[in-house]
Nucleic acid binder design. Structure first.
Length: 429
RNA sequence: GUGAGUGUAGCCCAGUGGUUAAGGCGCCAGGUUGUGGCCCUGGAGAUCGUGGGUUCAAAUCCCAUCACUCACCCCA
């Protein structure tokens, strides 16, 4: 039998309400802040990621789905969302709009890696980006927005970690200081860290091994090496967050996986220390658009993993409000009633009443059982007796009460009850 | 890419060398000539992940392989 590809999964109907809930909250927070939706293709020119974005990081070096199409074009399944958004910003001349341009996206990302808890080959990200302005006020807006989004979902146990990793002026000084510091500990480092010392020194800071953590704790801090502009930016951002009353933790060991970050980096961590890592993260990427071959343009953004959000919603037992829908099930007995049921179903649907029909000639018992299993509010029973008198038996599935209604009155009666029930329990969505 | 654990029906799982692989959920039917949710009865549904080996005999032991899960690397 065929199975879904490794690390990729089907999202079955019972899970859909939760997905819908998260997507709706995402869209509504974006509306609130004036961020507009943008869809980009799942596939991009591979170069967008390999050259411009993050050469030297694992995510493009060894985790990218990359292939040639029939025309020989090198394409890639997108491993992240920011670069495609920047590509679209440039391709469509969005730099001609008033800056910054505020956009959001919800879509699949792909990484070729061994799946485990909270980590998949296909996962879904919700992200928002403000492009075209370097003000720290925007960093603050993005972070507050991320927080508001998570709170609106009902999540509580998370914290926002914040750091600044400087810019291309001040970071090289920091990196060499870091290397100098680590040189004296080289013998004590774990094998992974020894490799990191060469390949990606910043990553030394977030090693999980206890001894390496002790060394990292005492290491030089990025913030001590920031150039005056970066320092001013970072201080201004913190001031803004304090004004916004958005709590954050300064974490001098926070660095992020993508190379394009400059200055601000932040991550949302669940309170429970899990190995599956961050709920989401983001930062400023003032060099990215220049790397794509355009004039230098600042940007800042955030992205969250929907699967991880959902798993945290489940852990924190946040209950999703069920969509209050009233549905009707049509049960019929006999050939004539079956045809009448077909006709009635069409009329009900025409009246915007959600309706399901029994497919075959099953017993009434079986049909009611099905109506019950599908959670119908009402069952309309059409039998031989009803056919003779041109009536229908309307059964309230909750109370079990039923009454005989002229066939011509079925729609009107159901509409009435629906209006009544909606009035009694106003929807909260 | 590395390491560990696990593969028995749609789902949860019992069964550690010996008849026909047990149970629960779910599904279908009956108990009610046209009445769901509870209860009772019955039924369908499993090449025991796959291939090979050991043995008179393998779901059970061995080897390989695949898949899943968890962890590392890394990340959402």
């Amino acid at each position: 039998m065929y199975k879904a590809p490794r690390g990729m999964s089907d999202i079955l109907p019972p899970e859909q309400p939760l997905w819908k809930y998260v997507k709706e909250k995402a869209a509504s927070v974006c509306d609130l802040y004036g961020y507009q939706p943008l869809n980009t293709p799942v596939i991009e020119d591979a170069g967008l990621f390999t050259h411009a974005v993050a050469g030297g990081t694992d995510i493009v070096d060894k985790e990218m789905y990359i292939f040639k199409d029939r025309g020989g074009q090198e394409l890639a399944l997108r491993p992240e969302g920011t670069a495609p958004v920047c590509r679209a910003y440039l391709e469509h001349g969005l730099f001609n709009l008033p800056q910054p341009v505020k956009l959001y996206y919800i879509g699949a990302s792909f990484r070729y890696e061994r799946p485990q808890a909270g980590r998949y080959r296909q996962h879904h990200q919700f992200g928002f980006e403000a492009i075209g302005d370097a003000s720290p006020f925007l960093d603050a807006e993005i972070i507050e927005m991320a927080q508001r989004f998570l709170l609106s979902l009902g999540l509580r146990d998370f914290s926002i970690h914040l750091n600044s990793i400087g810019c291309r002026t001040c970071r090289p000084g920091y990196v060499s200081a870091l290397k100098r510091y680590y040189a004296s500990f080289e013998g004590e480092l774990c094998p992974d860290c020894k490799a990191r010392l060469e390949r990606n020194p910043l990553r030394l800071l977030d090693c999980k091994k206890r001894h390496c953590q002790e060394i990292a704790e005492a290491a030089p801090r990025t913030t001590a090496f920031l150039c005056p502009d970066c320092l001013a930016h970072f201080e201004s951002l913190q001031e803004c967050l304090n004004i916004l009353k958005t709590p954050f933790l300064l974490n001098h060991r926070l660095v992020r996986g993508l190379d394009y970050y400059t200055r601000t980096v932040f991550e949302v961590q669940p309170q429970e220390e899990t190995s599956q890592g961050a709920l989401g993260g983001g930062g400023r990427y003032d060099d990215l658009i220049e790397a794509l071959g355009a004039k230098p343009t600042a940007g800042v953004g955030f992205a969250a993993g929907i699967e991880r959000l959902i798993s945290n919603l489940r852990e924190q037992q946040v209950n999703v409000p069920p969509s209050p829908h009233i549905t009707v099930f049509l049960a019929s007995l006999g050939a004539e009633a079956r045809k009448e049921s077909l006709k009635l179903a069409s009329v009900l649907r025409g009246a915007e009443i959600a309706t399901m029909e029994s497919a075959g000639n099953k017993s009434l018992k079986s049909q009611l059982k099905q109506a019950n299993a599908r959670g119908s509010s009402y069952t309309v029973i059409l039998g031989e007796e009803e056919m003779k008198s041109r009536t229908a038996m309307l059964r309230d599935m909750k109370s079990g009460e039923q009454r005989l209604v002229p066939l011509s009155q079925v729609v009107a009666t159901l509409r009435q009850t629906r209006a009544l029930e909606r009035g009694q329990s106003p929807g909260d969505t």
